[in-house]
């Protein structure tokens, strides 16, 4: 029996450079068995390198990687990828072009009657039943990605790594696939790491998200926590649209040009000057007699809502308007901030 008190995957103080540039600058990461973790970062943040180190395609310079208590990399140990029992779904799927769907999926299985049973099982989980005789070039982009996932799931790996697997798909399909894949992973009770640069993809599929910036994990949290309380401006931008305002912080409130806003965590109560972060949906129309005045200088019609740009004393804020009557461009309105704000570490 695995020891459930120990983290299933344990990455400690891992560093990696390519030439002069240090891509990973001391990564510490732990995850539980049966959970899905998203590595969220912009390109160049080192997220793919971290994945390749866990898979065993490259070796860390310093630091260790343990899977289920077994040391697989670092400290003089280096277990090759073929003995790590890790499933890998690369960008663009990378299906074997000379093999059909069935042979792609059973590539990692020992031949025999059990292999056929397992094939039917993963075909069912990934919704590919009936396509087993097709070749990769006869599949749609979504089907190719599902085949790559099925191939990785088939040998029941201890850990599945997905490296931006939906990049080649268009945006709508990509987000649909992300939650579809998450439910396939959950029904297979797999432990998985998903690398992505799309916050919505990470939110819809992961239990926890590690936000990576500049070769470090800046924050590791539940998706909602990461969105509502990012630790710094980089993480705030990584997880969605963010607006930063200069504020005077005192007694649990931030005083800004948009008025007084409550702080999410009152621990930042020492009087100071700092930047606070707000999300666009926090800006709302104020009741008459409250809020601060602003001028609508631009409006975009987006079907189910208007997106207005409002000039409030020199600060430009976005304002989502969902209910008629809609104010006209150029008109004066009153705006206020709903909810609380977080203070950014500089």
């Amino acid at each position: 029996m695995p020891d459930h008190n120990l983290p299933y995957l344990q990455v400690s103080a891992v560093r990696k450079s390519y030439g002069d540039s240090e891509v990973l600058r001391g990564i510490d990461l732990e995850m539980e068995q049966g959970s899905i973790l998203a590595l969220l970062g912009s390109s160049g943040s080192g997220k793919t390198t971290l994945l390749r180190l866990i898979a065993g395609f490259t070796e860390p310079e310093t630091g260790t990687i343990k899977i289920d208590g077994r040391l697989v990399a670092g400290a003089g140990s280096s277990i090759p990828p073929e003995r790590r029992h890790i499933g890998y779904v690369p960008q663009e799927g990378a299906l074997f072009p000379h093999l059909n769907v069935a042979k792609n999926i059973t590539f990692g299985l020992k031949p025999g009657p059990q292999s056929k049973a397992r094939l039917d099982e993963v075909l069912h989980i990934t919704g590919l039943s009936g396509l087993e005789d097709r070749f990769p070039h006869q599949l749609s982009g979504g089907q190719q990605q599902r085949t790559a996932l099925a191939r990785a799931l088939a040998p029941r790996p201890s850990l599945i790594l997905l490296d931006e697997p939906f990049n080649a798909l268009d945006l709508d399909l990509r987000r649909a696939m992300a939650s579809e894949v998450a439910s396939a992973l959950r029904s297979a009770r797999a432990t998985a790491i998903l690398v992505t640069h799309d916050p919505l993809e990470a939110f819809s599929s992961a239990d926890r998200i590690a936000a990576m910036t500049h070769g470090l994990i800046a924050q590791l949290d539940a998706p909602s926590k990461l969105y509502q309380a990012p630790i710094n401006a980089d993480v705030a931008r990584l997880t969605g649209t963010a607006l930063f305002l200069d504020a005077d912080i005192a007694q649990g409130y931030a005083t800004t040009r948009l008025g007084r806003i409550a702080l999410q965590s009152p621990s930042h109560s020492d009087p100071q000057q700092a930047q606070i972060m707000l999300r666009p949906e926090q800006f709302v129309l104020a009741e008459p007699g409250t809020g601060v005045p602003g001028t609508i200088f631009h409006m975009i019609f987006n079907g189910d809502h208007y997106l207005a740009s409002v000039d409030v004393g020199g600060v430009i804020i976005p304002l989502l308007l969902r209910e008629a009557p809609f104010p006209k461009q150029g008109s004066e309105i009153l705006v206020t901030v709903a909810g609380s704000c977080v203070v950014m570490k500089s």
């Binding site: 898979a55 065993g56 395609f57 090759p80 990828p81 073929e82 790590r84 890790i86 499933g87 890998y88 690369p90 960008q91 663009e92 990378a94 074997f96 072009p97 000379h98 590539f107 990692g108 191939r151 990785a152 040998p155 790996p157």
Partner: peptide
């Protein structure tokens, strides 16, 4: 793509077997 051999390795093939079963046929 070299990624094909990486996938083959992760599915239990040695470097030589990965070349023989994936790269060579292609």
């Amino acid at each position: 793509p070299p990624e094909l051999e990486n996938v083959a390795r992760s599915l239990g093939r040695s470097p030589l077997a990965a070349f023989a079963e994936v790269t060579l046929p292609n």
